[in-house]
Amino acid sequence: MGSLKPSAACPCGSGKPYAACCGPLHAGEKPAPTAEALMRSRYAAYVLKLDDYLRATWHASTRPSELDLAADDSKWLGLEVRAHRQQDETHATVDFVARYRIAGRGYRLHELSRFIKEDGIWMYIDGMINP
């Protein structure tokens, strides 16, 4: 599992310190207030290899039975949120591009992610790659 100094810039790209951004979400101190905040915190969790957080914020209907980021040699380089759309009180989408590198080769992941809010908590459902 990765670690980050609380004063360090948050990996989600918000420009805020980790302790004032995704840190409290990762620590379970508070839920994400919006689907975009959840998506950013999930990106940061991939950067920091926080398997448990990713599984906890993945909707039960689509959650993988296992997730092992320790074996993943991706180096995440940056996140661009292109759009956050809230369809109603409990459904939202986030369009984003994440850049990463594997074995020195650069890649871009463009995804339109779907989120649902249940019992006051935003959860990731799934995403369409290269929408």
Rank of each mutant, 00 (worst) to 15 (best):
G2I: 09
L4A: 08
K5E: 15
P6W: 03
A8M: 02
P11M: 01
G13F: 01
G13Q: 01
S14C: 07
S14Q: 07
K16F: 12
Y18I: 04
C21I: 01
G23S: 02
P24V: 00
L25H: 02
G28F: 02
K30V: 12
P31D: 05
A32E: 00
A32I: 03
P33W: 03
P33A: 08
A35L: 05
A35P: 04
E36A: 09
A37D: 04
L38P: 02
S41W: 07
R42Y: 01
R42I: 03
R42E: 02
Y43W: 05
A44G: 01
Y46C: 10
D51S: 06
D51V: 08
D52E: 12
Y53G: 03
Y53L: 02
L54V: 00
R55T: 12
A56P: 05
W58A: 04
W58V: 05
H59T: 07
H59D: 06
A60H: 08
A60M: 10
S61Q: 11
S61L: 06
T62Q: 11
E66L: 14
E66P: 11
E66S: 14
L67H: 03
D68K: 14
A70D: 14
A71H: 13
A71K: 15
S74C: 13
K75L: 14
K75G: 14
L77E: 02
G78V: 01
G78L: 06
E80P: 01
R82T: 12
A83I: 10
H84T: 13
R85L: 14
R85A: 14
Q86Y: 09
Q86C: 10
Q87M: 15
Q87R: 14
D88H: 11
D88V: 10
H91Q: 14
T93V: 15
V94Y: 00
V94P: 00
D95N: 12
R99W: 10
R99T: 07
Y100N: 04
Y100L: 08
G106Q: 14
Y107S: 07
Y107A: 07
R108L: 12
L112I: 12
S113W: 12
S113T: 13
R114M: 13
K117N: 08
K117V: 05
K117A: 08
K117Q: 11
D119G: 07
D119W: 11
I121K: 13
I121Y: 13
W122Q: 05
Y124A: 06
Y124S: 11
I125H: 15
G127E: 03
M128G: 14
M128L: 15
I129H: 10
I129R: 09
P131T: 06
